[in-house]
Design a protein around this nucleic acid. Structure first.
Lengths: 194, 194
DNA sequence: GTTGGTTTTGAACGTGCGTTCAGTTAAATC
DNA sequence: GATTTAACTGAACGCACGTTCAAAACCAAC
């Protein structure tokens, strides 16, 4: 027998996804052609179809994998007090998103390029992530640790604030990532306490 | 003599811009064709070129006009105390952006589709807007009204937080716009004071 | 070195793109 | 009603798109 039936190159596959991730983030899904992705990988456009059924599936897989990983590694420890959990969440969110700027960009910017069924699935994953923060805020409001008039609004406000870091933070800049984490944590903490 | 030389229809022109604004916001610049815009207006694609030299200029004009209007109407009253100015800024930002969801969406999402020279111009306008908030925060930090470790970071954090409202707020929802303004103002105020 | 399946090429398919422009229509002036 | 010119049509230009597929190249096992 030759190579295992159904197996594909374990080299080209990841390279296709990496190239697509980078190009989609830089230029946007609609502006990137399959031929561009192929050129980046060093193959002809036709070869890409060994690794994805079509362009849309490539985008969807990138977004889904990102969201699933996010949900897998987000710190959730119901035993800790709300303030501790909130600090962990804030530092985690900034750190995780900073390490994956392209995936973050795509996950927030390319939602409108998803076909309806795919959009629903990604939105559900996003909802689960937001629910983690909302749960922390609700628990803290219940115990009196936090002073939030509306947990849903506070959730959206905090996530937007934290995610914004990826749009301006640069490693070479004036501040280290942990400086930024410290200052965002200080702001978030004050904004949700009395 | 017939109609004034150089004049174009004052009806079709705005309709072209309105259609482009809506379509670019919904589907993204790269995904929208000139023929789609023309169909929305009710003309043939060729007619659009009476109103824009090309597709890129259409995008750029929309973004520039939005940013210029933003800068024109943002409340700036150096005589007021920083806390008053900050509250005015927060309420203004939420209200202004809520009234123009499509323009906001484009101004934040289509930057990468601008040609370099156009990008630089839009970024400069955005920088001027951010400088308004940064000035308020610096003044407040100087007088002791605020407690911000880094005015630049606080600026980015607050703007990201406020702009995020457009991604989830719906008129028909549970909360009125002024409820949202109140709660965001409460959070911002706490986050920048001691 | 032959075999057999995996992977890639390279050309082709139909379609739609941004843009141009000669020609037509329509409205304001006289 | 004739004239003038703005506004628009409709067809065309060359090009790039996503996707398909027969043929070729490649590689591990025998």
């Amino acid at each position: 027998m030759a190579r295992t039936t159904g197996s594909h190159s374990d080299i080209t596959g990841p390279r296709v996804r990496d190239a697509a991730l980078r190009l989609f983030a830089q230029q946007g899904y609609a502006a990137v052609s399959m031929r561009q992705i192929a050129a980046e990988v060093g193959v002809q456009a036709g070869a890409l179809y060994n690794y994805t059924p079509d362009k849309q599936s490539l985008l969807f897989a990138l977004m889904r994998d990102h969201m699933v990983e996010l949900l897998t590694v987000v710190p959730v420890d119901p035993a800790d007090p709300p303030l501790t959990r909130l600090e962990a969440f804030v530092r985690f969110h900034i750190g995780f998103h900073h390490a994956r700027p392209d995936a973050v960009f795509i996950a927030y910017m390319e939602l409108r390029n998803l076909e309806p069924a795919n959009f629903i699935e990604i939105e559900a994953l996003r909802g689960r992530y937001e629910a983690v923060l909302e749960g922390i805020l609700r628990d803290g409001a219940a115990t009196g640790a936090f002073d939030v008039a509306d947990a849903k609004i506070a959730t959206m406000a905090v996530i937007a604030m934290l995610t914004g870091v990826t749009t301006w933070f640069r490693e070479e800049g004036r501040l280290s990532l942990s400086d930024v984490q410290d200052q965002y944590w200080a702001m978030v903490r004050k904004s949700v306490t009395a």
